[in-house]
C-alpha cells in the first residue's frame, strides 16, 4: 500500500524523566499510506513515543518532523493542526458534551477545519460509518466501552489528520468487539490513511501492520514486516526473556 514517500520522521529521539531514560535514541520513518505498528513489552517506551509525537511530552533530544516541518518544538495544539490526531491509551471522551459534539470537537480546531452545518454533517457521517448512529442522541454516559473507543476514533478522524496515532485502541475489548475493531482499522488502512498504532494484540499486528518497529527498554531492537520482526531472535527474547 505504500508509495514510498516519507511522511513522518522520528530521528534520534531521546526522552528522559529525571534519571530515567524512557526513550533512548530512537529513529524510524513512517511512509505515506502506511500502517506502522509500534510494539514491545510493557514499559518499553511505546506510549512515550506516541506522547512525544502528539506533543503531550517534549523530547529531551532529537527531532520529529512531518515532511519538512519540525513538530518536536511545537506545542500539542499546533501539532494537531499540522495533521496529527490521536486516541488515548485510557479512553478520554468529553462527558459534558453530546456525542455529536464530541466528534465535532475533532474538526472544529483540527487539521482540516470545519464548523457549523458542514461539521455537523461530517460528524453524523463519521458516527454512521463507525456504527454509532443509533447511539447518536444518547448521553455519553450510556456508551459501552467499545462505543467510547469508537467515539474517540471518530473524534480523531474528524480533523482529517495526515497521521493517526492509535494508542492501544484495541486493548480491553472482548473477542467479538476485537473483530469489529480490527475490521474498522483495516477499513481505514484501505482508505490509504497513515497510521501508527501501539498494540499488544498479535492478531491485529499481523493483519493490520505493513511494518513494525519493536521497542525494548526504551531502544529500538528491530524493524521490518510483522513476520520478519516476530521471528527475530532479539524480539522473542525481549518478550519471553532469556531461556
Amino acid at each position: 500500500m505504500t508509495t514510498g514517500r516519507t511522511l513522518l520522521q522520528v530521528k534520534d529521539v531521546t526522552k528522559r524523566f529525571g534519571g530515567l531514560v524512557a526513550v533512548n535514541n530512537v529513529s524510524f520513518d513512517v511512509k505515506e499510506h502506511e500502517v506502522l505498528g509500534l510494539i514491545g513489552p510493557n514499559g518499553s517506551g511505546k506510549t512515550t513515543i506516541m506522547n512525544l509525537i502528539s506533543g503531550a511530552l517534549k523530547v529531551t533530544g532529537g527531532t520529529i518532523s512531518m515532511q519538512s516541518r519540525r513538530l518536536s518544538t511545537l506545542p500539542a495544539h499546533q501539532i494537531s493542526r499540522a495533521g496529527v490526531a490521536r486516541t488515548f491509551q485510557l479512553v478520554r471522551i468529553l462527558p459534558g458534551l453530546s456525542i455529536i459534539e464530541n466528534v465535532m470537537a475533532g474538526s472544529a480546531f483540527g487539521h482540516h477545519r470545519q464548523w457549523g452545518h458542514q461539521a455537523w454533517h461530517q460528524a453524523e457521517e463519521l458516527l454512521e460509518r463507525l456504527g454509532l448512529d443509533e447511539q447518536m442522541h444518547q448521553p455519553t454516559s450510556t456508551l459501552t466501552y467499545i462505543d467510547q473507543k469508537r467515539l474517540e476514533l471518530a473524534r480523531a478522524l474528524a480533523g482529517e489528520p495526515r497521521v493517526l496515532l492509535l494508542d492501544e485502541w484495541l486493548a480491553g475489548l472482548n473477542p467479538t468487539e476485537l473483530q469489529i475493531g480490527i475490521d474498522l482499522v483495516s477499513q481505514l488502512r484501505k482508505e490509504g490513511r497513515t497510521i501508527i498504532l501501539v498494540e499488544h494484540v498479535m492478531d491485529a499486528i499481523r493483519s493490520l501492520c505493513d511494518r513494525c518497529v519493536v521497542m525494548n527498554s526504551g531502544t529500538k531492537i528491530a524493524e521490518g514486516t510483522p513476520s520478519q520482526v516476530l521471528s527475530d531472535k532479539d524480539v522473542i527474547q525481549a518478550y519471553l526473556g532469556d531461556e
Binding site: 500539542a76 495544539h77 494537531s80 490526531a85 478520554r92 470537537a105 473524534r155 480533523g159
Partner: peptide, 11 residues
C-alpha cells in the same frame, strides 16, 4: 471537560 484532549484536538 478535559484540557489534555482540548490541546490534542488543536485548541
Amino acid at each position: 471537560n478535559d484540557e489534555e484532549v482540548a490541546k490534542h484536538v488543536g485548541i
